[in-house]
Design a protein around this nucleic acid. Structure first.
Length: 570
RNA sequence: GGCGCGGUAGCUCAGUUGGUUAGAGCGAUCGACUCAUAAUCGAUAGGUCGGGAGUUCAAGUCUCCCCCACGCCA
């Protein structure tokens, strides 16, 4: 029994996420959380929406709503979809919470006290019509280099030369199109990450068991070019955490907010406070403060590769730099990208399958199984409808679902809807126990190492053992000469259904809950002794035949969906 | 152009610190079985491990060069 803190990278509030976003952090994090809970560990699994920044403001404006209303509404949408996928967050928070506001301001003050924040003066374009500063890509104009008329503030798409927005000729706002712009001097705060470079470097070096993807990205940012750079942590926006030194104002920073990447990871901590304030827990500090009981917590973060720099460098700078006893991450599991049918999933272009659409066409378990057993761990992987159909039909319908079906229906027709009596196990049954024990041990090893593809393969291997056994002992033949022996074989097989439901539930929770309910099993404890677990349902124990646990995806459906999702959304 | 992850059977991928005849799943072919969601089980075929050179008694596994795909950055 250990204590595990698990966080998934927090999805941006703007719009519904696609399957690539889901498989890159939330879903594997959920798998791990469910597994550890099933093993009897104490788990706190947190996620939230990342709500600040310009994209949220623009999306709200487009929807004709105040930004806070828009975010509240979208939080509700995302929370509902997360529930649909059975993501078992202990709390799904919001980075715009008061708790996060206070904590972000607290960290800013402490970091400033530690000398890790410096002020920088910059010149930025201010738009009178929009009433705001225009960061790089919100401004366009004529390229001073090649004369291209639609050059963006940060780069000219025509000559590729990198630009500074103030150099553009005839600049205009991409928001309103206004040309009523003015260069203004403005001050910003920078986090002195470069000061922490050696400390971070040593810390990353000590993490020899982390995925290469995680450490190689961190190392690149630490050593590439001039090394780790300081980063601006403030913006001239309305929507965000107001820049303050704790409770005190920050002279010269009036009207500015912290930049999203600074306050977003702090939400991991704030989320636990929201969890307490929502009445779901009573002590957040024992998860986050090493001086208040978090010493024995193992903290694991899940994220896509694009988030690695923030979690290996920026957020650790905040934590380590504060010199306060905050819990630092122990393990960072990062993922590559999932591609869609020969290209990328794209939120902006609406390409691919989005979370709400996925749930409209099939239950969560179908998606969970395929996505997890094909999770992009070692390299980018690809979603194709063909592969999805094949994986679901073969693994779920044929191997697992059909096993439950053949066993329960055979028992009902030859015996009754109760675990049959008689017979004595022999050598073949001992072999089965040994095989199952080994396969499940292998599965557990992979789950503990968060080797998800391998864990899925082992789990499937355990399912196959049941079919192999049945095929070999052939109770449909045995029953003709020795009904008692057939009863023993089926009794074992019925118990295997229960066992499979228990160990598979981290992957496919709904189907497993159904199977357990059909088996009328009140014991869903994780098996430590397989032989004992296969006696959990004694002779005479009643059950019901499950409905089709997993249905097959037909060729017509596959073609239909392939067609339907080929274009773009909206 | 720089950097990163890859390039292993038709497809998707495993291959630990270099060491016996390179593995799995799917697909294909053949066979067995008939309890079951036309499901299951078994067998077989198929790879000069992107190319070249080198180190070594021994290289998919280390070194160098090159090629290809994808991604990130400037």
């Amino acid at each position: 029994m250990a204590r595990h803190l698990i966080t998934s990278a927090i999805p941006y509030i703007n719009g519904i996420k696609h399957l690539g976003n889901l498989v890159g952090s939330q879903l594997p994090a959920d798998l791990y959380a469910r597994y550890l809970r099933a093993r009897g560990h104490e788990v706190l699994f947190l996620c939230a929406t990342d709500e600040h920044g310009t994209p949220a403001e623009l999306a709200a404006a487009k929807a004709g709503k105040p930004v806070d209303d828009y975010c509240a509404e979208m939080w509700g949408v995302q929370a509902k979809i997360a529930e649909g996928f059975r993501l078992s967050f202990d709390h799904f928070g919001r980075s715009s919470s008061d708790q996060n506001k206070k904590l972000t301001q607290h960290f800013a003050k402490v970091l400033d006290d530690e000398g890790l924040i410096r002020e920088v003066s910059e010149t930025q374009m201010y738009s009178h019509a929009d009433g705001r500063y225009l960061p790089d890509r919100y401004i366009e104009g004529t390229c001073p280099n090649c004369g291209f008329e639609d050059a963006r503030g940060d780069q000219c798409d025509n000559c590729t030369k990198q630009l500074d927005p103030v150099d553009l000729i005839n600049p205009r706002s991409t928001i309103s199109g206004s040309t009523d712009l003015e260069m203004r001097d403005t001050k910003h705060l920078y986090l002195r990450q470069s000061e922490m470079k050696d400390k971070l470097d040593a810390w990353i070096d000590s993490k020899t068991d982390w995925p290469v993807l995680t450490t190689s990205i961190a190392k690149k940012w630490l050593h590439d070019g001039d090394g780790l750079q300081d980063r601006g942590i403030t913006r001239d926006l309305d929507w965000g955490v107001p820049v303050q030194k704790g409770d005190e104002p920050w002279p010269g920073m009036e009207g500015k907010v912290f930049y999203v990447w600074f306050d977003a990871p702090i939400e991991y901590i704030a989320c636990s406070q929201e969890w307490v304030d929502a009445g779901k827990g009573d002590d957040w500090a024992r998860w986050w403060r090493t001086d208040k009981g978090a010493d024995d917590v193992r903290y694991t973060q899940f994220m896509g590769k694009d988030n690695v720099p923030f979690h290996t460098l920026s957020f650790p700078t905040t934590i380590l730099g504060s010199n306060e006893p905050w819990k630092l991450v122990d393990y960072i599991k990062s993922f590559n990208y999932l591609n869609y049918d020969g290209g990328q999933f794209s939120t902006s272009r609406g390409r691919g399958v989005f979370m709400d659409q996925a749930l409209e066409i099939l239950p969560a378990d179908y998606w969970r199984w395929w996505l997890l057993s094909n999770v992009p761990e070692s390299s980018d992987s690809e979603f194709t409808w063909d592969s999805f159909q094949q994986g679901v039909n073969k693994d779920l319908a044929d191997v697992l679902g059909n096993f439950a079906s053949r066993v329960t229906k055979f028992c009902r027709s030859k015996f009754s809807e109760a675990v049959p009596e008689g017979g004595t196990p022999g050598a073949r049954e001992e072999q089965l126990m040994a095989d199952l024990t080994a396969k499940i041990a292998e599965y557990q090893t992979h789950m503990e190492a968060i080797e998800i593809r391998k864990a899925a393969a082992s789990l499937r291997g355990a399912w196959v053992l049941g079919n192999e056994y049945l095929q070999e002992v052939a109770p449909w033949s045995t029953i003709k000469e020795d009904p008692a022996q057939a009863a023993m074989q089926i009794r074992l097989a019925l118990n295997m259904i229960r066992l499979y439901a228990v160990i598979s539930s981290p992957f496919i929770p709904d189907a497993c809950a159904d199977l357990l309910s059909c088996m009328k099993a009140d014991d869903a404890e994780w098996p430590t002794d397989i032989a004992a677990a296969l006696k959990a349902m004694p002779e005479g124990h009643a059950f019901t035949v499950p409905d089709v646990t997993f249905r097959k995806i037909t060729d017509a459906e596959r073609e239909d969906w392939q067609e339907r999702f080929a274009g773009t959304r909206d």
